[in-house]
């Protein structure tokens, strides 16, 4: 059930992409996404919030409020920021379980892996891994709290 709420956003993005003709439009879309990323608070732009595996620096931070996860990010590179924002759009305001169990079907559907350089694609995977890790930590913490 929870995974479905992610799938709805994924379908939205797939639909938006379907209207874009050619790679330039697709990149323009990602660049626009990059300009609108929920920007991480400067105090969280720390070494420990850097994602390794990206060629340009990417910071990612997450908060857990009322059972849902909220992400913010920043990067030196706009395309990277755009990709981060794509993921954030999908994973924001979701329950940890939904994030943990999602297979991020849109990546395959959009052919993102094939379209990105191997380095960028690895970076994207590293971001997903980090987001899932955040969700897992929040879930564990939440179950410990409710168990007390």
């Amino acid at each position: 059930m929870e995974v479905e709420s992610i799938r709805i956003v994924e379908d939205e993005i797939i639909e938006e992409f379907a209207h874009l003709e050619g790679w330039m439009d697709k990149y323009n879309y990602i660049i626009d996404m990059g300009k609108n990323v929920p920007v991480i608070d400067t105090k969280y732009k720390t070494e420990s919030n850097l994602i390794s595996g990206c060629q340009s620096k990417v910071w990612l931070y997450a908060e857990f409020r009322d059972g849902k996860v909220y992400f913010s990010a920043d990067s030196e590179a706009v395309i990277t920021k755009g990709l981060a924002n794509l993921l954030i759009r999908i994973m924001n305001n979701q329950k940890p379980d939904a994030i943990i169990n999602s297979d991020f079907f849109f990546i395959k559907k959009l052919g993102l892996k094939e379209h990105l350089s191997p380095n960028r694609s690895n970076g994207l995977m590293a971001m997903i891994k980090q987001m899932k890790l955040y969700a897992l930590v929040f879930k564990t913490k939440a179950s410990q709290t409710s168990g007390e």
Partner: peptide
């Protein structure tokens, strides 16, 4: 101020 990776990605295409 365009990051070299951003520029390189487009130039590559």
């Amino acid at each position: 101020d365009i990051h070299p990776f951003d520029a390189g990605t487009i130039i590559d295409h």
